[in-house]
Design a binder for these strands. Structure first.
Lengths: 162, 162
DNA sequence: GAGAGACTACTCGGATACAGTCTGTCCGAGTAAATCCGG
DNA sequence: CCGGATTTACTCGGACAGACTGTATCCGAGTAGTCTCTC
C-alpha cells in the first residue's frame, strides 16, 4: 500500500506552479527537466491534474500548465485524489456474509463494523491532507530554503515560462 | 493505493479469535470455511500475524491459531502493519535534489517539506488505527449483531476448535 | 496393560502461475503562436 | 506593409512493453497428537 511516485511528482510540480506569476505557463518539458523526471510519464500526472480541474492548460508554443485556482484553494488532498483516485483505501468485500450460520439477510443494510473503523482511519488521513494548502506549503518552503536557491530557481524557470 | 484483501481477512480472523475461550485453537481450514475464503492463501495472512507475534500457533491435529495477547492489547494498527508492512505510505525520492540550480548539498539533512506533510497524514491514519483495539471491536460487534447469530456462530466454531 | 513405532492432521515455507497495476516509452492528432511569403 | 499559408512547439490521448505486486494454487518438510502393534 504505497502511493505512486506520480503523487510525489504532482505535488512538486504544483508547488512550483504556485509560485508562478499570474498568466504565465510552464511546459511539461521544463517541469520534467527541472525535477529530473521522464517527460512523457510526468505528462500523465499533469493530465490527471488537468482532468481534476486543478490546473489550466494551453496548447501551442509557450503553452503548458498553470494553476486553475488560488494556491490557498488547492489542498494536498485535491492533488493526491487527482492522481490516486477518490476511492477509499480499504474496500469491504462483505465476507461476513459467507458465515455458514447466517440466515437470510440478517445485519444487511449496515456496513461491516470492521470496515467502519478502517474508513474512519481513511477519513483521518484525508482530513490531514486537506488541512494543508499550497499556500501553506509555499510558506514552509520559503522559510526553509536558502533565499539564493529560490531566486536562482525562479529565474531559471522564468527563462523557460510561456 | 488500496490495502490488500489479506488485511480484511486478517481483521475478521482476529475478531473471531478474540472471542475464543483461553487455551483453544482454530485452524486455518475452519477460519477459511467460516469466511468462505481460499484456505491456502488465507494461511499467508495468518502466517504474517504469527510472524508479527500477534498470534500463537500449534502444530499437529487440533492445532491452529489463537491470540498471543489479550484483545485489549492488540490494535487495528498491529494487524494492518503485520500484513501490509510498517513502511510509510509515501516514499520521498528526493527529486528536489535534481534541481539544476542546486549547489552541492544545500538543504541536505532536513527532509523534504512535502514529504513531511505526507508523513503527518500517514501518522494521523496510523493513530486512528491504533486507537481501536480488538476488545473495542468486540463491543461494537456484540452491540450490533443479533444474539442468536453470535451464539450459533460460536457453537459452530467450537465444534471445530482444538 | 505399557511402551515403541506408524499414522494422521495440521502448520510452515518455498515454488509456481496468472492477472492487474505501476512505470516508462513511442507515436499520431490537434491546437495556437510564430514565421514566411506573395501581393 | 499586410494578410494568408506554412512551420513550429506544445498538449492530449492511445497503444504498447517491461517490472513489480497481489492473488491463488500446489507440494514437500516438519510437528504433535492419536492409533496400532508388539511384548
Amino acid at each position: 500500500m504505497i502511493l505512486k511516485s506520480q503523487v510525489e511528482w504532482a505535488l512538486h510540480c504544483c508547488a512550483i506552479l504556485a509560485g508562478l506569476p499570474a498568466g504565465r505557463y510552464l511546459s511539461t518539458k521544463t517541469l520534467a527537466e527541472f525535477h529530473g523526471l521522464p517527460k512523457e510519464y510526468l505528462s500523465k500526472a499533469l493530465q490527471s491534474l488537468s482532468q481534476a480541474g486543478l490546473v489550466d492548460t494551453t496548447l501551442g508554443p509557450n503553452g503548458g500548465y498553470r494553476l486553475a485556482k488560488a494556491p490557498a484553494q488547492i489542498t494536498f488532498l485535491d492533488i493526491v485524489e487527482a492522481v490516486e483516485g477518490k476511492r477509499r483505501t480499504f474496500v469491504c468485500n462483505e465476507i461476513r456474509g459467507n458465515n455458514p450460520c447466517k440466515q437470510n439477510g440478517s445485519c444487511d443494510g449496515k456496513p461491516c463494523p470492521i470496515a467502519r473503523v478502517m474508513w474512519d482511519a481513511d477519513t483521518a488521513w484525508r482530513n490531514s491532507l486537506a488541512s494543508v494548502s499550497l499556500s501553506a506549503l509555499a510558506q514552509l518552503l520559503s522559510a526553509e530554503l536558502p533565499d539564493d536557491l529560490l531566486e536562482r530557481s525562479m529565474s531559471w524557470l522564468m527563462e523557460r515560462a510561456g
